[in-house]
Amino acid sequence: MIDVTALTRTYAGHRAVDDVTFTALPGRVTGFLGPNGAGKSTTMRVLVGLTPATSGSATVLGRRYADLPNPGREVGVLLDASAQHAGRTGLETLRIAARTMGLPARRADEMVERVSLTGPEARRRVKNYSLGMRQRLGIATALLGDPEVLILDEPANGLDPAGIRWMRDLLRGFADDGGTVLLSSHLLHEIEVVADDLVVIGQGRIVAQGSKAELLTAAGTLVRSPGVAALAQALEAEGVHVAPVGPDGLRVEADPDLVGRIALASATPLTELRAADGAGLEEMFLELTADTARESAPEGVAA
């Protein structure tokens, strides 16, 4: 359980995190989504006490992170896989963390296996690790203390497709066992496949949040009909916004149920009716972050 309430972090007048409120619940994977520099990492750093909040609060398992007596045993954290001592071996890195948490050295060896690093790899210095191997080592450190909560910043970076699949299954399993997962990414697809809930952030502010199902609905419905013009008319008469897709399709800003009813009432035959997920969520993501994305920032900004 992670609770972030009205969290703000200011750097020299710039609001890196601006009044952010969300909850990550046990048993669910919460995806923290946003373009680069949106404030995801800063929020996570405040959450684990590395950065003080300017105002607002952040708690993990009902307590401030700094008040956890042995944080590693309750919260697994991976903020940056590159942030490991290059002159230490992977196994030694894990042993040090295990000792800090008060766990036997054997636990480090178990974790090496759990994240599929080979024995010789674990005995190599981190300097010689690929980013993917560092991510695995970072995940191993996070899982070491058998935590109830995982806080992971861009954990899929540098992993190969098999590694991404492995990570997804691991997080799914962790949440299914009742754990809380907060996972950040700037890649929508990565989050979409594994998250139950989404928190979308842009320029420090939350622009959307809810369960994935809710947000998919919000992303609209795709409908096709031989009588597309009549259907569009009927939908607009009900005050529903539509946009044409191809010669016979419409993207409708309403859930499929409502679109189906309006089609039935107007006696329009349909050839297809479904939630515009996938592409819809991506469109939503781009749309939501459009006003806040860097690409559009320089023009038209009144000083």
Binding site: G49, L79, T141
Partner: peptide
């Protein structure tokens, strides 16, 4: 070496 990220989180 940035290992403080782990040290100061643990």
């Amino acid at each position: 070496q940035r290992s403080g990220l782990t040290t100061f989180t643990l």
